[in-house]
């Protein structure tokens, strides 16, 4: 595993951390509509991806505007995670373009991609924290060699980000000591360390109980509001997605079934959307989290 990096945790003072189970269900704040008249931040054009001769995605087209919370939904195996990997250039499409700031990142080499990735953050499904590093070193990883920041500035920023995700004072703790929800929150703090314009969330509610899942959804919206970062969320958690996303893309049969607002999703006549939105979700499971 990567070794413990630096002394960022030295001055951290342990604080009382709210336990996942005792956190109150968070009311997700409503948002003003996002302005979609300007240049999109991210544009996907005619994307097609095959793996081992099997078509996983085809004819995918959509735009994401600055400040937007954009959801990608679909059944298990519908290609959501494959699409997310294409968006952050962990994988490349066989055809089509992934345009970020007017640059097709699907055609960039690794050095140029690393420049682009400085403007992006990613929260993985199972957090992907570095096991052998403290929470503080995990969060500060992307700036470990940044000489434009002093150690004190790095420490301060780590503390601020951990406070933002309600994990203040945990810099010295190891990932193994944290619950699933706490790890998710640390991974959100880590994704924000470079002040990204665009943050990707892969199944943020996966493996969490409904209360914690609701809290994470609220946190994503809070983080977007506080930082102004655009968010792309991949999830099959219908209730949470309808509760926090400005627009949602529904993947079905390897392509786009519908792109619309949560209200448009709820009122859609497309059978697969109706089945997914009305048939699989249950308000009883998520309480106040997602008024539908």
């Amino acid at each position: 595993m990567p070794e413990t990096e630096n002394v960022l945790t030295e001055q951290a003072q342990p604080e009382e951390i709210p336990d996942d189970d005792t956190l109150a269900v968070r009311e997700i704040p409503r948002r003003d509509p996002v302005d979609r008249t300007g240049e999109p931040l991210l544009s996907i054009r005619d994307v097609r991806r095959e793996i081992d001769g099997e078509i996983i995605l085809t004819d995918i087209n959509f735009d994401v505007w600055p400040g937007e919370i954009f959801g990608i939904m679909g059944m298990s195996g519908s290609g959501k995670t494959t699409l997310l990997r294409l968006l952050i250039a962990l994988d490349r499409p066989d055809e089509g373009s992934v345009i970020f700031h007017n640059e097709d990142i699907a055609r960039l080499d690794e050095d140029d991609l690393n420049r682009v990735r400085k403007s992006m953050g990613m929260c993985f499904q199972y957090s992907a924290l570095f096991d052998s590093m403290t929470v503080g070193d995990n969060v500060s990883f992307s700036v470990r060699n940044d000489r434009s920041m002093s150690d004190d500035e790095k420490r301060e920023k780590v503390a601020d980000l951990l406070a933002m995700v309600e994990m203040a004072g945990t810099e010295h703790r190891m990932p193994a000591e944290l619950s699933g929800g706490m790890r998710k929150r640390v991974s959100i703090a880590r994704a924000l360390m470079d002040d990204p314009e665009l943050v990707f969330y892969d199944e943020p509610s996966s493996g969490l109980d409904p209360v914690m899942s609701c809290n994470i959804s609220g946190l994503i919206r809070k983080v977007s509001a506080d930082t102004g970062a655009t968010a792309v969320i991949v999830s099959h958690d219908v209730d949470n997605m309808l509760g926090i996303a400005d627009r949602i893309l529904m993947l079905h049969d390897r392509t786009t079934a519908l792109i619309g607002t949560p209200d448009e999703m709820r009122s859609s006549d497309i059978p697969i959307i109706r089945r997914f939105v009305h048939g699989l979700a249950s308000d009883q499971m998520t309480g106040r989290c997602s008024p539908r």
């Binding site: 690393n114 420049r115 993985f124 924290l129 570095f130 990883f141």
Partner: peptide, 9 residues
């Protein structure tokens, strides 16, 4: 964690 490294440039 390897993918996480790549996403952090």
């Amino acid at each position: 964690q390897i993918d996480a490294l790549r996403t952090m440039a």
